[in-house]
Design a protein around this nucleic acid. Structure first.
Lengths: 169, 169
DNA sequence: TATTGTTATACTCTATAACTATA
DNA sequence: TATAGTTATAGAGTATAACAATA
């Protein structure tokens, strides 16, 4: 970080990641702030359009929210006509979440917006740098995602903290 | 995103940024979870050690929290002896936040931990890839940070949304 | 009158648990 | 008994506004 006008916990990596991530999130929020639930609402529509989750529980898990939150979110999205709850003929406890025509149309248009947002976030790079960066970024993320990220990330820290001798306090 | 077992709003970039960022944040939190306020508490100690902000208001702005929140945070950090509030001789309204010896010792040790966290987050890359990636990432972040990130990010979106004709609803 | 820091209040999110209807 | 979805409640975190001391 060191004198860039913003704070970070670390030697620049976390700071830079944070800047890019927040820029993306901010633009993404602006791109869907007219929807109920903002980005989360769009994730629900996205999953519905692409039929990625068979029921509400799986959908909530996929987009990383609690199933109790999803209930309210679906109430709003259904009221505005973006998605519908349909009974699952195979299990009458379950509901399938399907996109309406309105939801599908909205989804297609906003996908285009997101492509532009991505290019904006990487605006400091030229074409070939951008491609290299994306490829490497995706590989690093895939690696983290594959090898139990939560466990490993914290384990590194715990090992190092355990070595702190004598105790700081 | 597309079938990586986690959701994203976009064509992979936001997803990958999110994965790396969250991995870093999670490890960083684990590295300072014994401090009052966790990561925020460490940011306060960091700013105090490096004497980056002249008073509480500037400090709060630097680390991106409300000054009312900083009051409680400082109460806790002071009680545990990491920092002290000192009256500013030049302006009796202001307080300088200075690190104690205990705070300074803790800071030095945790800096080391963060360096390891960074290497873990980029664990999917080899040495030379890691260097290239860091350099490019820092450049992209610096660019975003320089050219009014909030304004530009949202402007891109607003321009595209304005072109959506006819209205979706 | 404006600013620094503090305190008190209200609001939003989230997490937890209890409830129903099905299996 | 276990599961899918819903509802109600409590807690944490945040934002807002009012306040006292000083400029």
């Amino acid at each position: 970080m060191a004198g860039r006008g913003e704070a970070g916990l670390d030697g620049d990596l976390g700071w830079a990641l944070g800047v890019l991530y927040r820029a993306f999130v901010k633009a993404a929020e602006a791109a869907v702030d007219d929807l109920p639930g903002g980005p989360r609402g769009y994730l629900v529509i996205d999953a519905a359009v692409r039929e990625l989750s068979p029921n509400q529980g799986a959908l909530a898990q996929r987009i990383g929210i609690d199933r109790t939150v999803l209930t309210y979110l679906l109430d709003d999205l259904e009221r505005e006509g973006y998605v519908e709850r349909r009974p699952d003929p195979a299990d009458r406890r379950s509901r399938r979440i399907v996109a309406t025509d309105k939801g599908r149309t909205l989804w297609e248009r906003r996908q285009e917006v997101f492509r532009h947002v991505e290019r904006h976030v990487l605006g400091g790079l030229d074409e070939s740098e951008m491609n290299d960066f994306r490829a490497t970024l995706l590989r690093a993320a895939a690696h983290i995602n594959e090898f139990d990220p939560v466990h490993n990330a914290c384990q590194v820290v715990n090992e190092l903290r355990a070595r702190e001798e004598p105790p700081v306090y």
